[in-house]
């Protein structure tokens, strides 16, 4: 019995999720445009003031997440849970975290939108760690099948950019029939 997010075999991603994206170049191009529009020298918009604590501790994790998510405020309780889960899931996590922060400090010119692509070329394990951090915050998931842990749902960051328009499925965001209005 299905429809909507529907009908696809359970483990088959929806059609639009299976597309191959080529985003690296256009993402950096748009970051360049934004930086230019703000009248900032390219690279300085995101890079200045990034001075994370040394090492791979929780504070270093928070500093990196702010940088990667473009947010100054993050849920500290959720941050703690995610950090602990990532440390537990990957014995090299703390070490990689410290290395990413060091790398970012010395690569101030890399737009924060393209960190993974840039790391992929020189430091593939660090690119993987960044991807794990993003997945944890945005989708609320840590670990690989069959032991994926769900650390967040309604507070997962994916819902943030659309929170004024779309509900978090299973929650009611407004009165019945609100959906007839043009968003």
């Amino acid at each position: 019995m299905t429809d909507a997010r529907k009908g696809r075999r359970a483990n088959a991603p929806a059609a639009f999720a299976r597309r191959t994206f080529v985003l690296g170049t256009c993402a950096s191009a748009s970051a360049l445009l934004i930086a230019t529009a703000l009248g900032l020298p390219f690279g300085s918009a995101a890079a200045f003031a990034f001075s994370p604590p040394a090492g791979g501790g929780f504070d270093a994790f928070v500093a990196l997440t702010r940088e990667l998510s473009g947010r100054s405020q993050l849920d500290p309780a959720l941050g703690k849970r995610i950090y602990e889960a990532l440390v537990k899931a990957d014995s090299a996590f703390a070490q990689n975290l410290a290395a990413i922060n060091t790398w970012l400090k010395s690569h101030g010119g890399v737009p924060r939108d393209t960190v993974i692509a840039a790391l992929q070329a020189s430091e593939p394990p660090l690119a993987k760690t960044v991807a794990q951090i993003m997945r944890a915050w945005y989708l609320g998931l840590v670990g690989d099948a069959p032991t994926v842990k769900v650390l967040a749902y309604e507070r997962a960051l994916m819902f943030d950019p659309v929170k004024d328009v779309l509900t978090v499925p299973s929650y009611c965001r407004d009165v019945p029939f609100y959906w007839t209005r043009k968003p």
């Binding site: 991603p13 985003l23 737009p111």
Partner: peptide, 25 residues
């Protein structure tokens, strides 16, 4: 489909390696 696409859209963008403000946009 009138299903909320947020999760599938985000998963695909993360898969493509997006981070930062561009991801949210």
């Amino acid at each position: 489909s009138n299903g909320v696409p947020t999760m599938a859209v985000t998963a695909a963008l993360l898969q493509a390696g997006l981070t930062g403000a561009e991801l949210d946009r």
